[in-house]
Amino acid sequence: MSELTREQVRHVAKLARLDLSDDELDRFTGQLAGILDHAARVSALDTDGVPPTAHPFPMVNVLRPDVVKPSLDRDEVLACAPDARDGRFRVPRILEDEA
């Protein structure tokens, strides 16, 4: 489970949209392998037929009425943005296959 390669780490970094330096790649490959080794202990437990817990306190149907509430002020919203133009957030060009 813990045979983590540098290439796998590079792939995961791409999924996470996170640039890593060569140095970071080396360091993380070792560290992640160690942590995963420890984390893999969970597989020692027999969990056949055990349902996963996503919420510690099971609740259902938490709903709100379909009633309009005030939105934020646009100037305040765009003031937070690194770059804005014409009432919109400005980003460098988007490549089609970015997703």
Binding site: M1, L4, Q8, V9, V12, A13, L15, A16, L18, F28, L32, I35, L36, A39, A40, V42, S43, L45, T47, V50, P51, P52, T53, A54
Partner: peptide, 22 residues
Amino acid sequence: MLGTYALSAGYYDAYYGQAQRV
């Protein structure tokens, strides 16, 4: 990185899924 790996295809059940069962 750790979390992305634990959720990624092929590892979800062994890692995240198993942790939620634990």
